[in-house]
């Protein structure tokens, strides 16, 4: 992949490079270039989804969960990225983080950032298009059902996401 000029926003901070390998995986860029190691690496082939980050095309656009291990810089150039390090604002945890803690959702914790970011995208979607409560479990399954976790059996991840979706006004009709 050719060298490209890079300009993207990560966690509200602008990152620019005059010239960088456009074929570099976003996961490598985050972890090795800009020291944002909260986004994890596991399979490297877009199966396990621990490397998920939230990507918006422009400010205010809907958030897409993106598997950073197989997404190159060329694809995300100019876009707005949120990683697990960007969820908390002004010293306050995001409700998903708080719910993950209080539900003992994770164990070793390595999968937690991927679940958080996929769930973060789900909340964004529900905010724009609320769904009936009866459809919530299916929506959660669709959002994080393909994420792999080896410790938890998934139960408490789903429970915490459901709790936040129900407690956040306007997501569930």
């Amino acid at each position: 992949m050719a060298q490209i000029p890079l300009s993207l926003t990560i966690n509200d901070e602008r990152f620019e490079r005059d010239s960088i390998d456009g074929g570099m995986w976003l996961n490598d860029f985050l972890r090795e270039e800009v020291n944002l190691t909260g986004t994890k690496f596991c399979c490297g082939i877009a199966v396990c989804r621990v490397c998920t980050v939230a990507v918006a095309r422009v400010p205010g656009a809907h958030l897409e969960p993106v598997r950073s291990c197989t997404t190159d810089l060329h694809e995300v150039n100019g876009k707005i990225i949120t990683t697990v390090e960007g969820l908390a604002k002004r010293g306050q945890l995001h409700p998903l983080q708080q719910a993950f803690l209080e539900n003992f959702s994770f164990q070793c914790g390595y999968s937690a950032p991927g679940f958080l970011m996929a769930a973060y995208c789900l909340l964004d979607r529900l905010e724009r298009s609320p769904i009936p409560e009866v459809a919530l479990d299916a929506a959660i399954q669709e959002a994080v059902g393909k994420h792999i976790c080896r410790c938890t059996g998934y139960v408490r991840y789903h429970r915490a996401i459901r709790q936040v979706a129900l407690e956040t006004p306007g997501l569930v009709t």
Binding site: E85, F106, G109, A112
Partner: peptide, 20 residues
């Protein structure tokens, strides 16, 4: 415990794993 003692580091993506 209200949550795991290592929970905050894990849920905020801190450097705690060897790979980090």
């Amino acid at each position: 415990a209200r949550y795991r003692i290592d929970g905050l580091a894990k849920v905020t993506g801190q450097k705690i794993y060897a790979r980090d």
